[in-house]
């Protein structure tokens, strides 16, 4: 999803709102990989957390990207 929107990953990663939200989820290590425990019982990597945050709080970021695609 993020790959379809060039630059979005980097711009969201630096947003203080995303960073604070992402950091509010517990972190677990599995086989040397880090995941956030989100949705109660799901392990999500950073990209998945980013997509979830955009969908919840900034859906227009994906819509803007879609318009650019057109």
């Amino acid at each position: 999803m993020l790959d379809r929107h060039p630059g979005l990953r980097d711009s969201v990663a630096s947003l203080p709102e995303f960073i604070a939200w992402n950091d509010s989820f517990p972190l677990v290590e599995v086989d040397a990989e880090s995941f956030r425990v989100a949705r109660g019982d799901q392990l999500m990597d950073r990209d998945q957390m980013m997509v979830e945050w955009i969908r919840l709080f900034r859906p227009q970021l994906f819509e803007e990207g879609a318009e650019n695609d057109r």
């Binding site: 517990p26 677990v28 599995v30 425990v37 109660g40 019982d41 799901q42 392990l43």
Partner: peptide
């Protein structure tokens, strides 16, 4: 997996990558 009680159990979806 000892997650420190962050979940009781956790799973995956069919469209997750095989290694997940």
């Amino acid at each position: 997996l000892d997650s420190g009680g962050q979940f009781i159990a956790a799973a995956f979806f069919p469209n997750d990558p095989e290694n997940r």
